[in-house]
Amino acid sequence: MRRIGVTVDGVRYEHEVEPRLLLVHYLREVLGIGGVHVGCDTSNCGACTVLMDGESVKSCTILAVQADNHEITTVQGLARDGEWHPVQRAFHEAHGLQCGYCTPGMIMASVSLLKENPDPSEEEIREGLEGNLCRCTGYENIVKAVRMAAERSGERAAAS
């Protein structure tokens, strides 16, 4: 067992964990954050995507001990003062989800994508979300949602 200290969605946690425990299992089973999904066992689907120090990672590809002293954001930590994150709002408004299984990962990957590239083209969005699979939406409205979020933040930036 190893002692780790991780900040998850703004809360600092300390736990003794098995060195082989995956971050996704730490988040789901130890911390009870059900918004982090598991969609595969081969690191293909991206349903488990979270931000580590602001950058997207598939939380099934890293160990909990590697998150020691790092900051993790899950979809459950995106909202501010009861207000959805602009990307969450765009997914809702653009019908960017159906069953919702891929959605937490899609949203986190999109947040990270927009941080790197605030004004991505449709093609750049598709490339940027390559690591996240969706079985329901055919991606069309997911791409639309990311464009919508980008345009709104562009407008906000222009207005301020």
Binding site: C40, D41, T42, N44, C45, E122, E123, I125, R126, E127, L129, E130, G131, N132, L133, C134, R135, G138, Y139, E140, I142, V143
Partner: peptide, 17 residues
């Protein structure tokens, strides 16, 4: 038997409709 071998298309693999 896994998503490594069974190719589900991602966003770049399909068009807009």
């Amino acid at each position: 038997g896994t998503l490594v071998d069974y190719l589900i298309p991602g966003a770049p693999d399909v068009p807009s409709f």
